[in-house]
């Protein structure tokens, strides 16, 4: 579990986060949503420790992330996997070498053991047999999966995904969501996903945090999204007339069943 306590972050005069206190649960996909400029990416980077807060605390279970020295912080980070918006795969390395890199750096496994683990994680993301291809030789969706495979290779306790669906077609987006959801439940990891994608919210949102202008304005799950009459939530998620109609239909159907 990851917990934040009154996290504030300012860049000069600009207060980007104005005091976020929340929890991200283990074994569940935790989604951070909000419009552009709401502070989602800053919150995610604070959770990972790439930014330091102006004030407030981030706890990984009982460990205060920002009280750690550099070595201890690196120890914690070895339990963290991250899928970047642009994948951040190393262009000069093959897919296999990309996935193997964290093992090369931090384990004493033999080459055979490392290759075996690479095959395992590639199988986990349904991407067997592309070990020798370069990132530029595979599609955007495949790159996302390779990014997930690399994030999972050291069996992390915490997984962070920054806009995992950006640039993907709806079908591939759903596949990526399902993959992240399965890995989260199967491995009981704390997954935090920063997303704009409403399919993700309604598909895998077991704990959703809505940010607006640097404040946490709503928290709940995908069922509560549908039921809630909170204006700020409805304005953001069901922004178009088409989505509002869909919501009304879904609620009617649900009430008819009840």
């Amino acid at each position: 579990m990851i917990r934040t306590e009154d996290i504030k972050k300012s860049f000069g005069e600009n207060d980007v986060l104005k005091g976020i206190s929340t929890e991200f649960y283990a074994g569940k996909p935790n989604l951070i949503i909000g419009s552009s400029g709401a502070g989602k990416t800053v919150l995610l980077k604070l959770l990972i420790g790439l930014f330091k807060p102006t004030s407030g605390k981030v706890y990984y279970d009982d460990t205060d992330l920002f009280s750690l020295d550099d070595d201890a912080l690196r120890e914690v980070r070895m339990k963290v996997g991250m899928l970047f918006q642009g994948n951040a795969l190393f262009d000069s390395m093959t897919v296999g070498e990309n996935i193997r890199f964290p093992m090369d750096m931090f384990t004493n496994k033999s080459l055979g053991e490392k290759e075996k683990r690479v095959d395992e994680v590639l199988e986990m993301v349904n991407m067997e047999g592309i070990n020798d291809r370069f990132p530029s030789e595979v599609s955007g969706g495949m790159q996302k999966r390779v990014g997930i495979a690399r994030a999972m290779v050291l069996e992390p306790k915490y997984l962070f995904c920054d806009e995992p669906n950006s640039g993907l077609d709806p079908k591939t987006s759903i596949l990526i969501d399902e993959l992240i959801n399965d890995l989260t439940h199967h491995n009981k990891i704390t997954t935090v996903i920063n997303t704009h994608d409403m399919n993700s919210v309604m598909g895998i949102g077991e704990n959703i945090v809505l940010l607006k202008d640097g404040n946490l304005v709503w928290q709940g799950n995908k069922n509560e999204v549908l039921e809630s009459d909170e204006q700020v939530l409805q304005e953001f998620i069901f922004a178009s007339p088409f989505l509002r109609r869909l919501r009304e239909d879904a609620l009617k159907q649900r009430h008819a069943h009840e």
Binding site: M78, M82, A88, F90, D91, F106
Partner: peptide, 14 residues
Amino acid sequence: QKEHIDAMEIMGVN
């Protein structure tokens, strides 16, 4: 710029 350095930092690489 391609976030490779961030990716390495998060892996725990100095």
